[in-house]
Design a protein around this nucleic acid. Structure first.
Lengths: 253, 253
DNA sequence: CTGATTATCGTCAGGCAGACGACTATGATC
DNA sequence: GATCATAGTCGTCTGCCTGACGATAATCAG
């Protein structure tokens, strides 16, 4: 019988954040170095406890702005500049996931455009963007030239993998890939986002036809840019459509 | 600064279940009548507190078997008879969602074949299958001839709506619809599952072509049946494929 | 036997995606 | 300034899949 108020076990509840961005053609996640045991010195996902009167989404938004300065973006409103997409990912509650006590962590997924630099509260050197492959690599293939050899603290590798998988599948059928782009962007920049997140090469011509032909996906702003060299490209903003139908197809293999 | 062990707020953590099945051409959910305040006498989703050393998935599986006798089904193993699909849905943690105290609820979604009858632990009359439209109907359109007029307790209407939406979208691109069917079933029975969950009519010929043409979706058992009247139909079991590519398309409007 | 019901196979046209050719507009290099 | 490399944009063609729907098959109810 649910909700016996007289006796219930007490849990700590935290939020952990998978913050993804695309930098230099690679899908990167935000990682913080732990300053306290357990896992002291190891990299982990940003996160923290939920406050007694705080909603889960509010706790995630608070941690996000503390770690990155990014505002969480309510999808029902027009996107303010410097805003990130934020959604709940999944909840992790293995009794042994934290060696000290029972902690249930509600993981959230945030997608952000490429930012100047991560900003930490007090110690800026302990937070960084790292390519997700290096963070998920358990064998230490990146170990010789970085300090990322050790796996992530707690079950954060699993959480990160789940977040990456969510992002990979969600850009198939939604316009979420634009959350990785600045307010104005070109078709080529959007294509490089897809290529980085999926880890594949896409045909520029078919991609252009698909995204410009999907109603509501992209809105031309009129301007052009030549950021990448080559012929100047039209600039677009994200349109009102959130669901892509038919979806973008991820190439086989 | 995550994980300061000295001071953290204490939460209660519960699991709530959205258990769906298809009965008589309608998508139905399991509801229990609350015997205790708050919301005494109102219908609610089954659920309960997570035990101190219990994983979240284990707590959900325990509640499921307590309420229905259904075994939760590990998707990596061959399905035992009378097993239901069980997956985490989302977590609800509004500070005011339970008037007594701070309860964070990890909702799970279960899909079950049509069962003989729901089985409650002690009081069988307080648990029932109800069509999801009647449970979600806030205006009391069902109120004159049933006691389902009152909305569900707590935020369970929201949780149920999220679970139904998850089921509706997930049968598009996965073989999960077979979880609503008995071990052996016909193409027509599977089609009626889609029609009930989506609330649309599908063309029997195109549906037949699609599901029999998708490799790994259905495996013929050799037998035939004539449960529905009309020409006998081939019997199938669910194949090994879990992802349908290309997906089943939900008709517009 | 006749009609109703369900299952199953076929046909055809339209839409969309993958493969790829062609042309355009810029910066870099000589 | 000519040439080349680079990136963007427009077209074409072919094959696959889907929706619409005709036709046939095998049962049950009268």
């Amino acid at each position: 019988m649910p909700y016996d108020p007289s006796a219930f076990p007490a849990f700590a509840v935290s939020v952990d954040l998978v913050v993804l961005t695309v930098r230099r053609h690679a899908l990167c996640a935000l990682a913080v170095r732990r300053g306290e045991p357990p896992f002291k010195g190891r990299w982990a996902l940003p996160g923290g406890f939920v406050r007694p009167d705080e909603d889960l989404a509010a706790a995630a938004a608070r941690e996000l702005i503390e770690e990155t300065g990014l505002l969480a973006h309510d999808p029902t409103l027009p996107a303010p500049p410097n805003a990130a997409h934020l959604e709940q990912l999944a909840t992790y509650g293995d009794p042994k996931r934290d060696p000290r006590m029972r902690v249930v962590s509600v993981a959230h997924l945030a997608l952000a455009p490429d930012l100047p630099a991560p900003r930490a509260g007090g110690d800026a050197h302990s937070v960084r963007w790292a390519p997700v492959e290096s963070l998920l690599d358990q064998d230490g293939a990146f170990g010789r030239d970085s300090d990322l050899a050790a796996p992530l603290a707690f079950d954060h590798a699993r959480i990160l993998a789940d977040g990456v998988e969510r992002a990979r599948s969600k850009i198939e059928y939604s316009s979420l890939a634009t959350a990785f782009c600045p307010q104005e962007f070109t078709v080529g920049e959007l294509r490089r986002v897809y290529e980085a997140v999926w880890g594949v090469a896409l045909d520029p011509r078919n991609f252009h036809r698909k995204v410009t032909g999907t109603p509501g996906f992209l809105v031309p702003t009129g301007g052009t840019t030549t950021r990448q060299g080559g012929r100047p490209a039209q600039l677009f903003r994200a349109g009102g459509a959130t669901l892509l139908n038919p979806p973008m197809l991820r190439p086989e293999v």
